[in-house]
Write a protein that binds this DNA or RNA. Structure first.
Length: 137
DNA sequence: GCCAACGTTGGC
DNA sequence: GCCAACGTTGGC
């Protein structure tokens, strides 16, 4: 079981929308590093759901529902998509600002390479984020 | 709205 | 194969 972080601009697709939909296709990825991460995802892997630009916080959890398949949005076989299912929404988001203040999270890809839209997360990072979401009240 | 960081493209 | 130019992302 691996852990990931997936990014979305809330104006494009938010955690609220995912909660309503139950699950969604995660497509439109046009970056090889992100694509490679999509390919490595397995059913039931945990995904932190991050709101970029507007929000700048991890707002909830999703899990991988369907493993990589060709992105239906393009003819180019290089690009893949997955499906993710809604898991939970944090009552209080874990803000990027606070992640940057946490010494144990300095190595997160989110901190080091903010542009990568699908990124791996270490189990201990994942746990710590969950703890922060709970103690954040 | 600006700009730094990163990725991609294309001329040589 | 190098690198300048350009486009995009996303934090600030």
């Amino acid at each position: 079981m691996k852990y990931w972080l997936i990014k979305s601009e809330p104006g494009v697709y938010s955690i609220d929308q995912l909660e309503k939909d139950g699950f969604t296709i995660w497509d439109g990825i046009r970056n090889y590093q992100a694509r490679n991460n999509l390919n490595a995802m397995k059913v039931n892997d945990g995904c932190l759901f991050y709101h970029s630009n507007d929000g700048k916080a991890i707002v909830g959890l999703a899990k991988v529902k369907k493993e990589a398949f060709p992105d239906p949005g393009t003819e180019d076989p290089a690009w893949m998509a997955i499906e993710v299912a809604f898991e939970k929404r944090f009552s209080k988001p874990v803000f990027l600002e606070n992640i940057k203040k946490e010494p144990q999270l300095q190595e997160m890809v989110l901190v080091k390479n903010s542009r990568l839209s699908v990124q791996p997360v270490l189990p201990e990072e994942f746990e710590l984020i969950l703890n922060m979401a709970q103690s954040n009240q």
